[in-house]
Each structure stands twice: as C-alpha cells, then as structure tokens.
C-alpha cells in the first residue's frame, strides 16, 4: 500500500476516533458511576449537531462561538432532565435502563425527523476551517490534512485533557472517584451522591453535545446519526474498561485505526463487521477491558 494513502487513512481514522472518544467519554462516566447504560446518548450527539445548525442559521460565519456553549448547555440540561425523570428511578436495574433509554432515543429521533426532516441538514464550516494542510515533497508528497478534521482532533484532545484534570485534580473529581469506588462509604462521608449522579450524567451529555458540533462540521446532521455512533461508542467503553477515561481514549484510538485500516484493505461494510468481531475476540483475552477497575469484590454492585 502506498504511504500517502495509508497515512491518509490513519488520519481519517484519528478524526473519527476523536468523535467516538467524545461520545464514549460521557458513557464511560455514567456507566462507571451509576452502572447505567444510556442508549439515548447518541441522540445527545445528534441534538448537539442540530443546535450547531441552528447557531449557524442565527449567527452566520462566526457561529462556532455560539455553537459550543449552546450545544454544551442544551444537551447538558436535557441530560439532567432525563436523569431526573427516568434514570434515577431505575438505579440498580441496568438492563431495564437500557430498554427505557432506547425508548427515549426513539422519541427524540422521531421528534428530530418531524422538526428537521429525515434528510441531513448541512452546516458550512467557517472560512478559516475550510482549507487543508498539504504536504510537499518527501515520501508523503500530496498528503492533505483538512483543517476541519485537525480542528476536531484538537478539540477532543482538549476535552480529554480537561476531563482528566477535572477527575484527577479537582474536588468534584475526587467525589466522582470516591463514589466510583464505594458509593455507600462516600455517601456516609457526606458526598451528595444523588446530586453527583445528576451532574455527571449532565456533564456526559454536554460532552456528547460538543462532539455534535464537531460532527456537524464533518458531515450533514440527520436524525439517525446518533444511532450510527452509539454501538461503536459502547464498544469503546467495553474495550477501554468501564469507567476509565484513559481506557476510553486508548480504545477509541484503537477502534478508529482498526476500522480505518480495514476500510483501506477491504470494503467499508466488511471493515465494520471485522472490527465488531475483533472486539468480541479481544474480550476473550481481556474480559474487563484494557484498564479494568481493580476490585476484590466478588460481584459488581
């Protein structure tokens, strides 16, 4: 395979992995903390995308300054609402949450279909993002890096760094880690676990909303875009190890690269199938994912 094509595939894989990572971060957080499987998480991505579309309509070329806060706050509020009305009633019943949130995702998708139509709405990237970096000379002559994809990669690196700081260096993060390790003990030491659950859930939703902005820049937003990402995002969580931010990052890269490489070698649909089967095989080797939470407990509570 020629090196230009190969590096191009890897670069595309990296940008896809970035979006996957942003989507999976929220899932990893809420799954690690509350053992909640949120099937409607992909719809936060979709809503973030539509909010970007609205921002672009309102503001014109400089819309990104509005799109980020709008997408983050909008989806975070919706996440908080979802947590308050449905999810907190289902703690300790992960399989049931899965079904309920799938129902919510159906409702949100249908609502989007009726408001925005079933075909994708395009968002034009601002002028400073529409160019590309082109490599001249050397082995990689002719390789292009579109600005939009570079922007998405930088964005997700920034969010990942921010999340790492928040979880490992801030008081909020200390509480999250404490509840993650032992909910009862954390609660008895004065952590308001209910409030924390809601905040973490809203935060995860907000990050997915931000991912939606990146998604809107890369391709048109349609009602089923969230559903397309959700299965892969869950695989990232499973491969990375539940509740591990680092693991989610590594797994997103791994999945993104594997898919991009397989796509280069065979057809796109076969690549997707191969990737999914590779994940199942991987779990034979490491059933708890790349970075499992160490625990001596016999059963997960």
């Amino acid at each position: 395979m020629d090196p230009v094509f190969l590096s191009g595939q890897l670069f595309t894989g990296l940008s896809v992995a970035s979006l996957l990572l942003l989507t999976a971060l929220g899932l990893a957080l809420s799954f690690g903390l509350m053992r909640v499987i949120n099937m409607a998480h992909g719809e936060f991505l979709m809503i973030g995308g539509y909010l970007t579309f609205i921002a672009a309509k309102l503001m014109g070329p400089g819309f990104l300054w509005l799109a980020f806060p709008l997408a983050f706050v909008g989806t975070a509020l919706l996440g908080a609402l979802l947590e308050f009305t449905v999810i907190r009633r289902l703690y300790g019943r992960p399989l049931d949450t899965l079904l309920a949130t799938w129902g919510i995702s159906l409702i949100l998708q249908q609502a989007a279909r009726q408001i925005f139509g079933s075909t994708g709405v395009p968002v034009t990237a601002p002028a400073w993002l529409s160019g590309a970096v082109v490599v001249h000379g050397g082995v990689l002559d002719g390789l292009t890096f579109p600005h939009v994809r570079l922007f998405v990669i930088v964005l997700s690196a920034l969010v990942l760094g921010g999340m790492w700081w928040l979880l490992n260096r801030s008081p909020f993060g200390m509480h999250v880690r404490a509840v993650n390790q032992n909910r009862e003990v954390a609660a008895s030491l004065g952590v308001n676990t209910r409030r924390l659950d809601m905040l973490v859930f809203a935060l995860g939703a907000g990050i997915a909303g931000v991912a939606g902005v990146g998604l809107a820049l890369l391709s048109p937003v349609n009602p089923t875009v969230g559903a397309a990402y959700i299965v892969n995002a869950f695989l990232v969580v499973v491969v990375g190890g539940v509740g591990s931010v680092l693991g989610a990052g590594a797994a997103a890269l791994l999945l993104g690269f594997t898919t991009a490489l397989a796509e280069g070698l065979t057809s796109s649909s076969l690549a997707q199938s191969i990737m999914l089967i590779l994940v199942v095989v991987f779990l034979q080797w490491k059933p708890k994912g790349l970075f499992p939470t160490q625990s001596r407990a016999l059963e997960e509570t």
Partner: peptide
C-alpha cells in the same frame, strides 16, 4: 466461559447483529 455478564452481553450481542446486517448489506 470468560464470565462476561450483564450489560456487556447486551452490548456484544447487539454489536454482533449489527456486524451480521452490515455484512449482508455489503455483499
């Protein structure tokens, strides 16, 4: 045999049906 349980099973089985359908669509 690797004691994969609970939601992991749900996610894996869902991924497998997606893999099957994607393969069917592609061939």
């Amino acid at each position: 045999r690797r004691r994969i349980t609970g939601v992991y099973v749900s996610i894996i089985t869902q991924a497998l049906v997606l893999a099957f359908v994607t393969w069917l669509n592609g061939s």
